[in-house]
Simulated assay, not measured.
Amino acid sequence: MGVDREVPEAEEGAGGSHTARARQVADAVERLVGLWTSAAEAVTPRLSRHQLNALMAVRHHAELNLTALAETLGIALPAASRLCDRLEAAGLLERVIHPRNRRELQLRVTSQGQRVLAEVADRRSISLAAVFAAMTPAARTSLEQGLQAFHEAYDARGDWNA
């Protein structure tokens, strides 16, 4: 069970409160998610967040079946089945007989699905590059250092639910 703990100002150090920093990061993440989502919405066929997540999960996990996809995405099996139906109808996903278990269907991203995923990745990179280009070199360096420090602090903490 997580415990919310308000950090006293004295522990926060110079430069403002952790809460204010957290709000700034939350605002930046919100903008990043918008940029991220718009890349998937700009491809043809247009992909919802769930469809994109499903395609990416299938691409990253070899031999994924419908049950495993539902578990991976945290959705019910009927919802996963409908999601796959739509992706299959769009030519982005296929269900094939598992090579070692003929009673099981395996999910695979089609070549068209691979092209769509590559286009989404390209659009995301171009959008991020445009934002980075608008930043000063010092700001880009600060961002890189800040992200690295965030990763290190996150990894060092371990269980964030405790």
Rank of each mutant, 00 (worst) to 15 (best):
residue 1 M to Q: 11
residue 2 G to F: 04
residue 3 V to L: 14
residue 5 R to K: 12
residue 7 V to T: 15
residue 8 P to C: 08
residue 8 P to E: 14
residue 16 G to T: 11
residue 16 G to V: 09
residue 17 S to Q: 01
residue 18 H to R: 09
residue 19 T to S: 10
residue 21 R to N: 02
residue 22 A to E: 03
residue 23 R to L: 03
residue 23 R to K: 11
residue 24 Q to E: 15
residue 26 A to P: 00
residue 27 D to M: 10
residue 27 D to L: 13
residue 29 V to I: 15
residue 30 E to F: 12
residue 30 E to L: 14
residue 34 G to W: 00
residue 38 S to H: 07
residue 41 E to S: 13
residue 43 V to W: 04
residue 45 P to Q: 05
residue 45 P to C: 01
residue 47 L to W: 00
residue 48 S to L: 07
residue 48 S to K: 06
residue 48 S to M: 08
residue 49 R to A: 09
residue 50 H to T: 05
residue 52 L to R: 14
residue 55 L to W: 00
residue 58 V to E: 03
residue 59 R to F: 00
residue 61 H to I: 12
residue 64 L to Y: 08
residue 65 N to G: 14
residue 65 N to I: 03
residue 66 L to E: 11
residue 66 L to A: 08
residue 67 T to P: 00
residue 68 A to Q: 15
residue 70 A to V: 06
residue 70 A to I: 05
residue 71 E to C: 01
residue 71 E to W: 02
residue 72 T to E: 14
residue 73 L to V: 09
residue 74 G to V: 01
residue 76 A to F: 07
residue 79 A to N: 15
residue 79 A to L: 12
residue 81 S to K: 15
residue 81 S to F: 05
residue 82 R to Q: 14
residue 83 L to Y: 05
residue 92 L to S: 01
residue 93 L to P: 07
residue 94 E to F: 01
residue 95 R to V: 03
residue 96 V to Q: 11
residue 96 V to F: 02
residue 97 I to T: 15
residue 97 I to D: 12
residue 97 I to N: 06
residue 98 H to S: 11
residue 98 H to F: 08
residue 99 P to K: 10
residue 101 N to W: 07
residue 102 R to I: 07
residue 103 R to N: 07
residue 103 R to H: 09
residue 103 R to W: 01
residue 104 E to N: 08
residue 104 E to C: 04
residue 107 L to G: 11
residue 107 L to Q: 09
residue 107 L to W: 07
residue 110 T to L: 06
residue 110 T to W: 07
residue 113 G to V: 03
residue 114 Q to N: 14
residue 116 V to G: 03
residue 118 A to C: 07
residue 119 E to F: 02
residue 119 E to C: 01
residue 120 V to M: 03
residue 122 D to M: 02
residue 123 R to L: 12
residue 124 R to D: 07
residue 124 R to W: 02
residue 125 S to D: 13
residue 129 A to Y: 02
residue 130 A to G: 13
residue 130 A to F: 00
residue 131 V to S: 04
residue 131 V to Q: 12
residue 134 A to K: 13
residue 136 T to C: 02
residue 137 P to N: 05
residue 138 A to L: 13
residue 140 R to Y: 09
residue 141 T to E: 13
residue 142 S to W: 10
residue 142 S to A: 13
residue 144 E to R: 10
residue 144 E to Q: 11
residue 146 G to C: 08
residue 148 Q to W: 05
residue 150 F to V: 07
residue 151 H to S: 10
residue 152 E to K: 05
residue 152 E to R: 12
residue 154 Y to T: 04
residue 154 Y to E: 04
residue 156 A to L: 14
residue 156 A to I: 03
residue 157 R to N: 03
residue 157 R to L: 01
residue 158 G to S: 11
residue 160 W to N: 03
residue 162 A to T: 06
